[in-house]
Design a protein around this nucleic acid. Sequence first.
DNA 1: CATGAATGAGTATTCATTCAT
DNA 2: CATGAATGAATACTCATTCAT
Lengths: 195, 195, 195, 195
Amino acid sequence: MKRNKPKYKQIIDAAVIVIAENGYHQAQVSKIAKQAGVADGTIYLYFKNKEDILISMFREKMGLFIEKTEEVIAGKSSSSEKLLVMIENHFSILCDDHHLATVTQLELRQSNKEIRLKINDVLKKYLKLVDMILYEGIDRGEFDPSLDVRLTRQMIFGTIDEIVTTWVMNDHKYELAALAKPIHQIILRGCQAHQ
Amino acid sequence: MKRNKPKYKQIIDAAVIVIAENGYHQAQVSKIAKQAGVADGTIYLYFKNKEDILISMFREKMGLFIEKTEEVIAGKSSSSEKLLVMIENHFSILCDDHHLATVTQLELRQSNKEIRLKINDVLKKYLKLVDMILYEGIDRGEFDPSLDVRLTRQMIFGTIDEIVTTWVMNDHKYELAALAKPIHQIILRGCQAHQ
Amino acid sequence: MKRNKPKYKQIIDAAVIVIAENGYHQAQVSKIAKQAGVADGTIYLYFKNKEDILISMFREKMGLFIEKTEEVIAGKSSSSEKLLVMIENHFSILCDDHHLATVTQLELRQSNKEIRLKINDVLKKYLKLVDMILYEGIDRGEFDPSLDVRLTRQMIFGTIDEIVTTWVMNDHKYELAALAKPIHQIILRGCQAHQ
Amino acid sequence: MKRNKPKYKQIIDAAVIVIAENGYHQAQVSKIAKQAGVADGTIYLYFKNKEDILISMFREKMGLFIEKTEEVIAGKSSSSEKLLVMIENHFSILCDDHHLATVTQLELRQSNKEIRLKINDVLKKYLKLVDMILYEGIDRGEFDPSLDVRLTRQMIFGTIDEIVTTWVMNDHKYELAALAKPIHQIILRGCQAHQ
DNA sequence: CATGAATGAGTATTCATTCAT
DNA sequence: CATGAATGAATACTCATTCAT
């Protein structure tokens, strides 16, 4: 299994750095190889092609997202709190790794439709976590039972994504983590039953 | 003024079609020229370069968005209704022009950072309309006075954008317009004062 | 006869200015037309094509050279003096018209082989004047009777041309006219009989 | 060091041939690559761009000129003889390589100002050799002590260059080497003290 | 005579991928 | 396993010239 070999991760980490620092269209395979400290040809011993590096990179990083999210929501009982810690976790990971934030919010979106569709597949696992929180919230009576879960999840993800993208576009110049609570407030209102 | 000459609009409309049908990176200038029924060189009598075609295209189309939105919100008195017709208008325009939807949601995002920044400038005018509705709603007592307008606007735009992108990625296979009312409900809850 | 119409000379003078100021490869027909104050298409009522402008320009200006040279050498009796006034005249015309100097010494030489051969044809009339002075000098006993007139003429023209080109390349920053006498001295030695 | 690799020289030699046979403006990179027996992209492993091929070509060939000239003048003691062997060497190299002659005298002069300035830099080393011969000749009492070395060098180089250019323009149809002695005679007279 | 909008052929350079060593 | 030299397809833009008005 190539994924466990050290050079596999080495190349993926190099790709994040190179894309963040040079932009998607200036992230040539040769630059990634140089950053990873291997020869160009070596890349192709671990990845099928350039596209495969990008998909793999997203899969690995998104895996961390999902793992961490599962951890933090496991510690909370109310759905409202689960939403909050999920948002906090989302913001926290991207705050801690500005390179990753730039890559996922700006650079990777410049890839072509084919790659973006595959990236979306990977994303689905994360979105299912949101769905689960929503279903549970409805069951628990915390959220409006008439909620359209698919639409609400799109609202939640669209909002978080837009907030993060704007933060990245503004060069991370304000404190993203501070927005978790107010965002959670706004989102929560959209989920709760209306009197 | 070149913008009023027929070939100007002819070329922009050709660009929308060619990009939608071939993808951003396969939309060569020669293809656009052919689709527009002019010679390659003629493009450059109306546009500085390829980038200029894209920016101009976005500016023209977004102009229609803003114009139409101003029209429909002018006919409504309550802020809640204004939000609704704005969303309906947004969905309606993209439903009526699948090519345009594909181009704005998927293809144009593959452009380089420079182009995307210029596109963002154009977008800001549209976002200001949302801000205006929100401020007015707070004044009218319809919306929560403690609302963070900037965050709320990001929630609204992020939600709409995510909904539309998902619809485009699913090949427009369901009725986007039908989502306007439920989305409006969800968004509205986020804006209204909580008891 | 088009050559006597005002726009003919107007276009040629415009060409000298545009080429001098923009360089040969940046002297587009449209620039020349603009400088001449006529429409692009008008150029083609007076010249067959762009090449024809250049050849005609060289022919007109070289005509002035020859005319003036004939005037000044007519006023001198000794061949040595004739050589001197010819050189002085050559330098004087180019000193008085820096644009022309730049065009003939640097820019026009960037034209292709075909144009340069045609320019050489025009130049031949001027070179024949040099030959005439040399033959006369031999007849008069001023110059070495064993002189190879063709080679000597090439020496004279090559020297003058190199001197002027170097002066233009140094941005006309020293007094070209002051070099006429010393150059004449050097050239003269090459022509006179050796003891 | 790329300059010592075989493909470096291979490409330069291909460039001389392609430019000589097709003319400067018809010497596409792909033609040069084909002539050199390499892929288009390979060119760019050895040269920064097309301009770099031309400058390098001139530098390499002019290097041979200077090297050979230094060799032949080292074998002579009198300055007069040094001038002669320098001229003979100059003519001999170009006689032996008609392609090179065409390229240096006609085609390379069509390049833009930037390239020509860089070529001139390379040329300066050759011109310094002429200066050295002249200074030595004055010291040895062979040449007129009142000689203006700069002007004289321009006379010598201008003469040689004009002779060669005329020979190339006449399709090398006469024996250039045969002109070395008479030219040397003419030049020599210009250098020697006059009685 | 004069105009100027329209034409369309032509080319340097990049970079993902391969394969002989 | 690892290398890195070599490959070659693919594309925006310019500008001399024309011709309908």
